[in-house]
Amino acid sequence: MHFINSKSILSSNNGMNLYRGCTHGCIYCDSRSEKYNMNHKFEDIEVKRNSLDLLKKELLKRKPAMIGTGAMTDPYIPLEKRLKYVRNALKLVDRYGFGFTCITKSDLILRDLDLLKKINQKTKVVVQMTLTTADDDLCKIIEPNVCPTSRRVEVLKTLNEAEIPTVVWLCPILPYINDDEKNINSILDFCIESNVKGIVCFEMGLTLRKGNREYFFHKLDEHFPGLKEKYINQYGNDYKIPSPNNESLMRIFKKRTNANNILNTPQDVFEYLYEFPQKSHQTRLI
C-alpha cells in the first residue's frame, strides 16, 4: 500500500476510484493492462489520501446524480476493511443527496448495508455483483482472494431482502474453462432466485490486452496445463476472445432472462443504473 494526493476524484460521468490496484487476484483482470499506465505493482494498492476531501468539494458543485465506483478497482478490497474510504464516501453521498452504484465481488459490502439502505430510501442504490462460475472450487482458482460465488449469491439475496436493487455482471466467460451450459444455467438460476434487476453480458468470452494477457497465460500454465497453447493457436494476440459456444450460450441467456423479466442488454442495464430518481423527500445538506 502507498498513498498519493490526487487532483480530482470524480470523472465527468460521476465515476470514482478511491483505490488503484487490487489484491483479489482474478486471473483475467483487464485492469492489469498496460493501457491504463499503472506505474506501480498491481497488488501494491494506491490509496488516494485526499479523496474524501475532494469528493465533498465536487459533490457540492454537482447536480445530484448516481455516483459509481468499481469499474477499474473493486472498492471492497481487504484494505477497505481498515481504511473505510468507501464507507466514508457513502456518508458523503448520503449527506449531499446523491445515489450510489458499485461493482464488487466482495461480501464486505454488507458492512455498509445500513448506509446503502439509508441512501436507497432517499434516492437510489444499485449493487452490481460479478458472477463468473457456479463452481466454488473453480472460483477459488480464477478469483482466488475474494469470497466464492455461493457467498456472493447470499449477498445478492440479503440485498434483495433489504429492497436494494442488484445487477449481475456475467463476465468474463473463459473459453474451455467455464463456457458450458451447466455453468450458465446455474448462474442464471442464482440471478432468478435473487431477483436481480439486470445482467450485463456483452457476449460469452473475455478480452486480453498486453499486460493482462501475460498474467492470464501464466495462470493458465499454473492451473490448466496445455490450455495456453490452445488459446495462442486459436486466438493469437486478438483482443476479443469469444467462446466457441457463444451463440448457443447467448440463446440460453436471452431466453431465460426474457422469460424472467430481467434486463439483458448492456444499453438497457446501463440506462437503468444511471437513471437518477427525483424523489419528493430528497434532502441536500450543506
Results as ranks from 00 to 15, higher is better:
16 M>D: 02
16 M>I: 14
17 N>S: 15
18 L>G: 04
20 R>P: 00
20 R>E: 14
21 G>K: 08
21 G>D: 03
23 T>S: 13
23 T>F: 08
23 T>M: 07
24 H>W: 00
25 G>L: 09
26 C>H: 09
26 C>E: 05
26 C>M: 01
27 I>T: 11
27 I>D: 08
28 Y>C: 09
28 Y>W: 13
29 C>I: 07
30 D>T: 12
31 S>V: 14
31 S>A: 15
32 R>V: 04
33 S>H: 08
34 E>P: 00
35 K>Y: 14
37 N>Q: 14
37 N>K: 15
38 M>Y: 12
39 N>L: 15
40 H>V: 13
40 H>D: 09
40 H>S: 13
41 K>Q: 13
41 K>L: 14
41 K>T: 12
43 E>L: 00
43 E>G: 10
44 D>F: 07
45 I>A: 04
45 I>E: 04
45 I>V: 15
46 E>W: 04
47 V>G: 06
48 K>S: 11
48 K>F: 10
51 S>G: 02
51 S>V: 04
51 S>T: 05
51 S>F: 07
54 L>F: 05
56 K>V: 10
56 K>C: 13
57 K>S: 12
58 E>V: 01
59 L>R: 08
60 L>Y: 04
60 L>M: 12
61 K>W: 03
65 A>L: 03
65 A>I: 06
66 M>F: 06
67 I>F: 07
68 G>E: 12
69 T>P: 03
70 G>H: 03
71 A>Q: 11
71 A>K: 04
71 A>G: 09
72 M>Y: 10
74 D>I: 01
75 P>E: 09
75 P>I: 10
76 Y>A: 04
78 P>L: 10
80 E>K: 05
81 K>D: 12
81 K>E: 13
82 R>V: 08
83 L>Q: 09
84 K>Y: 08
86 V>Q: 07
88 N>F: 10
89 A>Q: 06
89 A>M: 08
90 L>W: 08
91 K>L: 13
91 K>A: 12
94 D>L: 14
95 R>N: 11
98 F>N: 05
99 G>D: 03
99 G>N: 08
100 F>D: 07
101 T>C: 12
101 T>R: 15
102 C>D: 02
102 C>W: 01
103 I>F: 01
104 T>H: 01
